[in-house]
Simulated assay, not measured.
Amino acid sequence: MALKKLGHSVLQVAPIGLGTMSLKGGATKQNTEVLRRAVELGVNYFDTADLYERGMNEDMIGQVLAPIRDKVVLATKVGNQWRSDGSAWDWKASKAYILKAVDASLARLNTDYIDLYQLHGGTIEDPIDEIIEAFEQLVEEGKIRYYGLSSIRPNVIRAYAEKSNIVSVMMQYNLLDRRPEVIFPLLREKNISVISRGALTQGLLIDKPVKDYLQLTSGEVGHAQRNVEKLANSLGISKTHLLLAYVLSHPVVEVAAVGVRTSAQLNDLKDVIDRPVVLSENDRVELERGIRRLVYKEHV
């Protein structure tokens, strides 16, 4: 895979990344095999969060990838704190919390630095200037190389894009959910990359039974499924390949973070990795034909 620069950073990332939330249960044999196989295939971006399994996911990443730390880009997230009884978590948007939480993530990840530290959510009511100060301090201290945002709220994304040095925004973006395109022009202007999650639409456009999705009816999803099948057959690629090519064909999207649980699922991505497909504008038009464009109704 040809590497791509993430925003205005110097981080070089493969366009297919691994979202590790679905790798549950710690450093099991299966999880270890998935992570090592991903590296063999050319994946170098690994995305986790301190929230996942109360830190166990970070710990697993740290154990397995420590021997090749200098060959991978580690991304994690901060901002949510589990309650002591484990029943739920609370939003902790403060400078003090971020400066404290990073040390725990560094220890679990078995590393001296985090390549990309992302705010895991956020609201426009947060003390945004204070939060930015925390991330900038961590950059100065060498604990993180860059910071970004994980959010689908345009008003929050806009605030950080205008006021901070974020290099990326992780958000759901796929053929059925094109709502983020409202903020894409600003991100492109600021040289901030998008990390797409949910590109495979929960399997609805691949092999899962059709059902409602967000504001779209099952009938509309079925129409989109037919679009995907028709173009995939025309191009001679799988539906998975097409859906990933779709999100990556947008100039502002640099990485599609995909969640897998098994090496077999990862092997299904091998063709995507080995044979990248660049969709033409006509291909995108054909895929989108007849699919209602959704809009954000809140946090605009």
Rank of each mutant, 00 (worst) to 15 (best):
L35Y: 02
E189I: 09
G55P: 08
D47R: 00
G79S: 02
E220V: 13
R284H: 09
A75T: 09
N44M: 03
V139S: 01
K71V: 09
N44W: 00
V167L: 02
R36C: 02
A199V: 04
S164V: 11
T217Y: 04
L187F: 07
V182G: 11
Y97M: 06
L242Y: 09
R83Y: 06
P276A: 06
S218K: 15
G148T: 09
P127D: 13
L11W: 05
D268Q: 11
I152S: 05
T111Q: 04
R54E: 12
L244K: 04
M56C: 01
R293E: 15
W82V: 07
I273N: 06
R178A: 07
R69E: 11
S9D: 03
D271T: 13
D274G: 02
V64T: 06
V102Q: 08
L74W: 00
V43F: 02
S9A: 07
I237V: 15
L175G: 13
E220I: 13
K24E: 05
R108P: 11
R108D: 06
K208Q: 13
S238N: 07
E130P: 04
A256V: 01
D126N: 13
G55S: 09
Y97V: 13
A256K: 01
V167R: 01
P276G: 09
W91A: 14
S263D: 03
D207Q: 11
N267D: 14
L176W: 03
S150M: 01
L214G: 11
L235A: 12
M60W: 02
K100A: 13
A245I: 04
R69C: 08
A96D: 15
K230L: 14
E133P: 02
V78E: 05
S249M: 07
V295P: 05
S218Q: 14
A264T: 08
A161S: 14
K208W: 00
S150I: 03
V169S: 06
A93S: 12
R158F: 10
Y246M: 05
T48D: 05
E58S: 01
H8Y: 10
K4H: 12
A224Y: 07
Y97F: 15
R153A: 14
K5T: 15
L65C: 03
A93W: 06
H223E: 14
P154G: 11
W89S: 13
S151H: 08
V64W: 00
M1L: 03
E254R: 10
L187H: 04
G26I: 10
L65W: 00
V72S: 07
V167H: 01
K95M: 04
N174H: 02
M60H: 05
V73I: 14
A224M: 11
Q215E: 15
G42Y: 02
R153F: 11
S151F: 08
A93C: 09
V210Q: 03
I16D: 04
D271V: 05
Y52K: 00
V156I: 11
L175N: 10
I98H: 07
R178M: 11
H299Y: 15
D271Y: 04
A104D: 15
V13L: 09
I291V: 15
T240H: 01
A101C: 04
A245W: 01
K190D: 07
T76R: 03
V102E: 06
G121L: 03
Q137M: 15
L3V: 13
N282C: 00
L287Y: 10
T123D: 14
L266G: 04
L294V: 14
T217N: 12
T20Y: 00
V252T: 13
H241R: 05
F135N: 05
G17L: 00
K297G: 15
R261W: 00
Q172W: 00
I152V: 09
